[in-house]
């Protein structure tokens, strides 16, 4: 009845994963926070190097290509492109290690 081997639905019925198909509002809020945190790190690096009149290629490329959190569309913040999915989008939390990777850009038109 209790413990790790209890007879829950997902254990006794075979393949049954009860992972919600969309993010909860709290998950979305935390995701925005993580995005802003990465933006802050990049801004700090850029600011510190700019004082020495230096920069790095990767930093420049990130600033040029990557949208900041406030510039992103909700669609891109909370979903990712997936070619196998109906309408080509799946919720971000289906992405492995989604809280520790930067996934901001998606193929244009999808």
């Amino acid at each position: 009845m209790f413990g790790p081997f209890r007879a829950t639905q997902s254990l006794s019925v075979g393949l049954l994963w009860k992972i919600p198909w969309r993010l909860s509002p709290t998950q979305k809020a935390r995701q925005r926070k993580r995005l802003r945190r990465v933006d802050d790190v990049v801004a700090t690096l850029d600011h510190a190097l700019a004082k020495l009149r230096m920069s790095t290629k990767k930093l420049e490329r990130w600033k040029e290509e990557m949208p900041r959190e406030e510039e992103m569309l909700p669609k891109d913040k909370y979903t990712v492109f997936d070619r196998k999915e109906k309408k080509y989008r799946k919720a971000l939390h289906k992405l492995p290690k989604w809280t520790r990777v930067s996934q901001r850009l998606n193929p244009p038109g999808f």
């Binding site: 802050d40 790190v41 990049v42 700090t44 690096l45 510190a48 190097l49 004082k51 230096m54 990767k58």
Partner: peptide, 21 residues
């Protein structure tokens, strides 16, 4: 110290760390 080398290293792990100058 603030150098491009260190900045590059931090950039590699920017999702994992907090940085202040």
């Amino acid at each position: 110290p603030v150098t491009p080398d260190v900045a590059g290293q931090i950039f590699r792990v920017k999702e994992l760390v907090d940085v202040e100058e």
